[in-house]
Amino acid sequence: MTEYKLVVVGAGGVGKSALTIQLIQNHFVDEYDPTIEDSYRKQVVIDGETCLLDILDTAGQEEYSAMRDQYMRTGEGFLCVFAINNTKSFEDIHHYREQIKRVKDSEDVPMVLVGNKCDLPSRTVDTKQAQDLARSYGIPFIETSAKTRQGVDDAFYTLVREIRKHKEKMSKDGKKKKKKSKTKCVIM
């Protein structure tokens, strides 16, 4: 069974824990209790493949930012979460993405942009803004509501699919490099 290491990042209060708990335990946590770091595991079937999701729910508070490099190193894919009623959390996505790329030393890291709290009427981040940002990053965008469960499975499952595509691409690139290195030079 394939294991996928997913990391949920975003500013404090955007609903990272609520999304994760909704996926794992099928219930909505409405009281806000700032996370330092929590880890969850769940076995699911995605596109006919049974897999184990190892999900790291991270601290959004700035005082825990020193811990970010460590979990970013171990993560295979990242859910970059903002709240649709919090423009600052949307603007912060850029910083999370840049930090992930720096730590992973790669421009090509599996990510999904997630606009959470889409059940709320007080939207300050337009869907088109988020779609445009995701398009500019070359990553999928999904709106979710941890409260109603809308888009929750889709967000995590899409990230797994992005990781699969990335692994497939990397193995193809690896095979191309191996083929090239088999060419021999004969000096007579």
Rank of each mutant, 00 (worst) to 15 (best):
T2P: 12
E3N: 07
E3P: 15
E3Q: 10
Y4D: 12
K5H: 09
L6W: 04
L6R: 01
V7A: 09
V7L: 04
V7C: 13
V8S: 04
V9F: 04
G10V: 02
G10A: 07
A11M: 13
G12N: 11
G13Y: 09
G15R: 00
G15F: 00
G15Y: 00
G15D: 00
S17N: 01
S17Q: 00
A18M: 09
A18W: 04
T20H: 03
T20L: 09
I21D: 15
I21Y: 15
I21C: 15
I21W: 09
Q22E: 12
L23A: 13
I24G: 10
I24Q: 14
I24H: 14
I24M: 13
I24N: 13
Q25M: 08
Q25S: 13
N26W: 06
H27N: 13
F28P: 04
F28Y: 11
F28A: 05
F28D: 03
V29M: 14
V29R: 08
D30A: 11
E31S: 10
E31D: 13
E31C: 11
E31H: 10
E31G: 09
E31T: 08
Y32K: 03
D33R: 02
D33N: 04
P34C: 06
T35C: 00
T35P: 01
T35S: 06
I36D: 05
E37A: 02
D38M: 01
S39M: 09
Y40I: 03
Y40C: 02
Y40V: 04
R41K: 13
R41Q: 12
K42H: 10
K42Q: 15
Q43V: 11
Q43A: 11
V44P: 13
V44M: 13
V45L: 12
V45H: 12
V45P: 10
I46M: 12
I46D: 14
D47A: 09
G48I: 05
G48H: 10
G48C: 05
G48M: 06
E49R: 09
E49S: 11
E49A: 09
E49C: 07
T50K: 13
L52H: 15
L52A: 15
L53N: 08
L53H: 07
D54A: 05
I55T: 13
L56P: 02
L56K: 07
L56S: 04
D57W: 02
D57F: 00
T58P: 03
T58M: 02
T58V: 06
A59I: 00
G60F: 00
G60I: 00
Q61A: 14
E62H: 07
E62P: 11
E62L: 05
E63Q: 09
E63T: 07
Y64P: 01
Y64I: 02
